[in-house]
Design a protein around this nucleic acid. Sequence first.
DNA 1: CGAGATACCTTGCATGTCTATATATTTAGA
DNA 2: TCTAAATATATAGACATGCAAGGTATCTCG
Lengths: 114, 114
Amino acid sequence: MQGISGDTLRGHLESLVLSVLERGPAHGLEVLRRLEEAGCGSLKLKEGTLYPALYRMEESGLLKAEWEDSPERKRGPRRRIYRLTPKGKRQLAAGRVKWQEFVEVIGGILGAAT
Amino acid sequence: MQGISGDTLRGHLESLVLSVLERGPAHGLEVLRRLEEAGCGSLKLKEGTLYPALYRMEESGLLKAEWEDSPERKRGPRRRIYRLTPKGKRQLAAGRVKWQEFVEVIGGILGAAT
DNA sequence: CGAGATACCTTGCATGTCTATATATTTAGA
DNA sequence: TCTAAATATATAGACATGCAAGGTATCTCG
């Protein structure tokens, strides 16, 4: 099993990002870690995929990003913290509905053995 | 609801085509009709998407195509009849397994919240 | 200093779907 | 016989997005 990536993932990445950010704000690599963990090792996702996605989502108003600049943390480079906007939350809810429809339709055609 | 198409569909079309061809050989527009019907109106799929997909699948050995040339039918232009190859059947089986994993992983991440 | 870890960023490419249009064949109709 | 409609295949061009591969910057530690 080579995991979920590429064309299969396409069109679902934004919902995944929104979903893990629902647990709370996070910076890029943290989003990556959450996805990796939640995907039980099946999700193969690279930085070169994630960062552009984050920018797109910020640009379209789904996320709001801020440079972490607290004096408490001075170790390592600055991080960019992403959090859901109200619009992002709405799109996440819509994405879940779409996902349900998607699973029913495609699964139905594939003749889901279940 | 604008239906399932574009990036959402990407990476799943081949399995869908294999699946409807499992019922029996069919020509292009017939495949389209079967998908439309099986998709309960949620599948928005155009010829410009299907034909290139059929060619790819023929080229990679998943399908075998023949020009219909039977004397019985002389109405309308010639049709190209596609049928599953053994390789196509194997890939359909594999695609169903992958679909299960896909649904579990993505659905798990999208649904795990609350 | 240099190595390593962390974090962010960018370029260029591959690929599959979509839009739109073109062509060919047959039937029906005036 | 000319035209329109229905059927069926074909393809060019545009585009979005995930990916590979590389780069930059900051901090810690030996």
